[in-house]
Computed example of a mutant assay.
Amino acid sequence: MTLHYSEDFIGWPEERVVFPLANLELRVLPGDHPFYLAERDAIAENWTKEVAANPALFDGRMLFQKRLELRDGKLLGESHIVPFSTFMWWRRQEKRHGGVHLFAYPVLATSDNALVAIRMGAHTANPGQVYFAAGSFEPEDVVDGHCDVEANMRREVLEETGFDLSDAQADDGYFAVRNRRVVTLLKVFRFDLTADEVIEKIEAHMLVADDKEIAGAVAIRSADPKAQPYNIAMLPVIEWYFGQKVNR
């Protein structure tokens, strides 16, 4: 199957509008991403600057979409494995081109109608920003040539918070939202604990975790965009989630 990717997201809902997905099919292709091949020198030059500004950065491997299409409610993707430095250069482009960044937010909901997110540490690529425990799709998320989205979410949440998503009640289906050539996948996981109880457990996990990427956890109780220093991808998500509650 060859995807006919549109630079303009023709046929997609408008930016910052959360919409349901019927299904996912995210293929991972062998070989190098065309953007990486075309921009290799610029990627290396930019990475030198990135590491000079933040020596803690690590040039690991991640999936970067070459094509992404929405067809009859089904999200179809083709990606390649690239160095993280490729993504860092791509996201600095004023008019991003050559690919699409796709990642997944596990939306952690609590028994007292709050959401729980994390605040990133000062040494990370998004210092101080607040968003749901998440990370880029990585090679270990690839199963039989396809990206396993739920495996990615389980790993990231467990590493960063100590919570096992299998202990939560997952809502049916996925949702998605796009902004500036970044597409966010969403799935809601509901825990039978209050937000304060979840945060207490996360803070206890932080004391023993090998992964020291997060600086804390926060409860989100409204769609107020100024309540926290949110990553921009969070804003349509909290507006959608708390808007649903109001409209039920």
Results as ranks from 00 to 15, higher is better:
128 G>H: 09
55 P>G: 05
73 G>W: 10
166 S>V: 07
236 P>D: 03
135 G>Q: 10
226 K>M: 10
73 G>S: 07
24 L>V: 04
161 T>A: 06
43 I>D: 02
78 E>F: 11
221 R>A: 04
83 P>Y: 06
216 G>Y: 11
214 I>D: 01
243 G>Y: 12
223 A>E: 12
40 R>Y: 05
228 Q>F: 15
10 I>D: 01
228 Q>H: 15
193 L>W: 15
6 S>P: 00
108 L>I: 15
103 F>R: 05
240 W>H: 13
14 E>D: 13
103 F>V: 00
148 D>H: 13
23 N>K: 11
49 K>D: 03
53 A>N: 13
29 L>M: 14
211 D>K: 14
224 D>M: 07
170 A>I: 08
28 V>F: 10
40 R>G: 00
225 P>S: 07
208 V>I: 15
221 R>H: 10
26 L>Q: 05
162 G>V: 09
6 S>K: 12
209 A>Q: 03
180 R>I: 10
14 E>T: 09
237 V>H: 10
77 G>K: 13
205 H>Q: 02
46 N>K: 14
13 P>S: 05
11 G>K: 15
243 G>C: 03
136 S>V: 06
177 V>N: 02
36 Y>D: 00
218 V>M: 13
13 P>N: 10
13 P>Y: 14
195 A>M: 08
116 V>H: 11
176 A>G: 00
40 R>W: 11
119 R>I: 08
96 R>Q: 09
108 L>H: 04
62 M>T: 05
147 C>A: 15
202 I>F: 12
158 L>S: 09
162 G>E: 05
155 R>N: 02
40 R>T: 09
185 L>Q: 07
32 D>F: 15
232 I>T: 10
62 M>G: 03
21 L>M: 01
213 E>C: 02
185 L>T: 12
215 A>Q: 08
179 N>R: 14
214 I>W: 03
159 E>L: 14
200 E>G: 06
45 E>G: 04
193 L>G: 04
99 G>I: 04
12 W>L: 03
100 V>A: 01
220 I>S: 02
32 D>A: 12
223 A>T: 06
47 W>L: 03
4 H>V: 00
11 G>P: 05
26 L>N: 04
89 W>Y: 15
135 G>M: 12
35 F>K: 01
152 N>T: 06
239 E>F: 12
15 E>Y: 06
236 P>L: 06
97 H>D: 00
5 Y>N: 07
179 N>K: 09
218 V>S: 10
166 S>D: 05
78 E>L: 11
125 A>H: 12
243 G>M: 03
87 F>W: 15
123 H>I: 03
7 E>Q: 09
58 F>E: 06
192 D>P: 00
38 A>K: 15
152 N>M: 08
52 A>M: 08
200 E>D: 13
21 L>Q: 02
114 A>G: 00
213 E>M: 09
89 W>E: 04
38 A>D: 07
156 E>G: 01
156 E>I: 04
